[in-house]
Structures are given as C-alpha cells and as structure tokens.
C-alpha cells in the first residue's frame, strides 16, 4: 500500500466504521459547539461596545456572518461529497450530502432573515436587489431544487446519481450567476468582513467573539451532519433488511 494515510481515510467509508467514528466525534463536536457558541454570543452581545454608527444592531454580525459562511461552505462540501459518490460510489458520501442539504438551507434562510433585519435598521429597507443578496437568493433556489430532487426520485442509487450531478452543475451555475450579478451591479453591501490576505480586518474587540462564533457554528454543523448521516445510514439498513 503506497498511500497508507489516504487508505486509512477511505477506510471510514465503510458504514460500520463510519458509525463507530461518528459515535466518538459527534459528542466532542457538540461539546465544542456549546462551549464556543454560548460564550461567543454572550461575549459578543453583552461585553462589546456599540458601533459608533450602527449602535447595537452591529451585533447581528455574530449570527449573520457564521451562518453565511456555513451556507456557502456547506454547498461546497456537498459538491465534494457528490464528486466522491460519482467517482467512488460510497453510500456514506451520498447520504452525507443529502443530510447536509437541509442544514445548509436553514443556514441560508437564517442569513437572509438576519441580514434583512440588519438592513432594515442600517439601509432603511428589508431587501434590495444587491449582488450579495441576489446570490444568496440564487443559492436558496439551488438548495430547494436539490432537496426537491431527492424527494422526487425513487430508488436510492438513482436519486443519488441525479442529485450529485445536479449539485455539481449547480455549483458551477451559482458561481456563474454570482459573478454576472457582480458585473452588472456593484451594490450596497460592504466588502468581506474577514479575509486571510488583508492587513486590517474588523476591530479586535469584535474579531475574537466572531471567531469563537464561527468555530461554534462550524462544530454545530459537524455535530448535526454526523447525527443526520448516522440516522440516514440506519434508515438504509432497516430498508435493506426489509
């Protein structure tokens, strides 16, 4: 065996081993989520000063940004999982994509709702057809389409095939419409809050609680994903046993 590390990784595509691993990791992820989200939000909301212009509404950032971060990256993760299903035919990966779609959808809706509440106080309107808002509406359409497609097609393998292809195509076309929307209109929304290559990010007093909230939301996603995938695997097992 040449790549033993890679082989160790693929070993967990076996449902039994995956469930064993999930049983170890999911309580850990849940614990990290609780330990990061609650202090992060409490710190962010009660122990930071108000912004000089937006006053207290700026604290929506501690939910808005992690939710938006997850909404985009969950779709990316689904694309990777779909590719793994199409290439390696592993049930765990198809079911992981299926179970993360609903989490991604809820994160997208949360982003849109918190964003429009934020917009109502700073821009004076709940919704504008700004490029970023429009691309989230497009992302929402792709999540909904993906979930509809899973429920519409019957044998599991065929549904997994079709939805995987849909997901990969969807990521291409969602990116395409995002850049076209940005080409047409520059928009009202501010630039990225956090980026790796910039000197100056958001102010430090907001930065650390935000990072804590990001870590918390991500581990919440990992926890939910593992629980939901295990449930799907159990359902499949029950169906196969009759």
């Amino acid at each position: 065996m040449k790549n033993s590390a890679l082989n160790k990784f693929w070993k967990y595509s076996n449902p039994v081993l995956f469930k064993k691993l999930a049983k170890i990791i999911s309580p850990l992820a849940g614990l990290i989520a609780i330990l990061a989200i609650i202090p992060g939000l409490v710190w962010g909301v009660f122990f930071t000063g108000p912004d000089y212009k937006q006053l207290e509404t700026v604290k929506i950032i501690f939910i808005h940004v992690p939710a938006a971060f997850l909404a985009i990256n969950v779709y990316l993760m689904m694309t990777v999982a779909s590719l793994v299903w199409l290439i390696r035919r592993q049930y765990v990966s198809a079911l992981a994509a299926k179970s993360s779609a609903m989490i991604g959808l809820i994160m997208t809706i949360a982003t849109i709702i918190t964003g429009s509440l934020w917009g109502s106080s700073t821009w004076g309107t709940y919704w504008v057809w700004d490029p970023r808002l429009t691309s989230f509406a497009v992302l929402l359409c792709f999540y909904v389409g993906y979930i509809i497609l899973w429920s519409a097609i019957k044998p599991l393998e065929r549904a997994a095939n079709v939805t995987s292809l849909f997901c990969i195509l969807g990521s291409v076309f969602a990116l395409l419409s995002r850049y076209i929307v940005f080409f047409i209109d520059q928009g009202l929304h501010q630039g990225p809050t956090l980026s790796l290559d910039e000197e100056k990010n958001i102010d430090d007093s907001y930065y650390f609680p935000l990072i804590l909230a990001l870590v918390g939301f991500s581990s919440l996603f990992v926890y939910l994903l593992l629980v939901r995938t295990t449930t799907e695997l159990n359902k499949l097992k029950l169906k196969l046993m009759g």
Binding site: V138, C141, L149, L165, F166, L169, F173, L176, S177, V181
Partner: peptide, 26 residues
C-alpha cells in the same frame, strides 16, 4: 436528461429555472 426517471413537468420546470439565471440576467 437529469430528470428522465420522473416524468413530472412541474419538477423539471422548478429545478431548471435556477440554471437560467445567468443567461436571463445577461
């Protein structure tokens, strides 16, 4: 071609519309 196994026209229309956004916008 993706939705061959489900004949519903409604399903086809719903999941195709998001793919038309770039073309329609441009």
């Amino acid at each position: 071609c993706l939705t061959l196994s489900n004949r519903s026209n409604f399903l086809f229309t719903t999941i195709t519309i998001p793919f038309y956004f770039p073309t329609l916008l441009l």
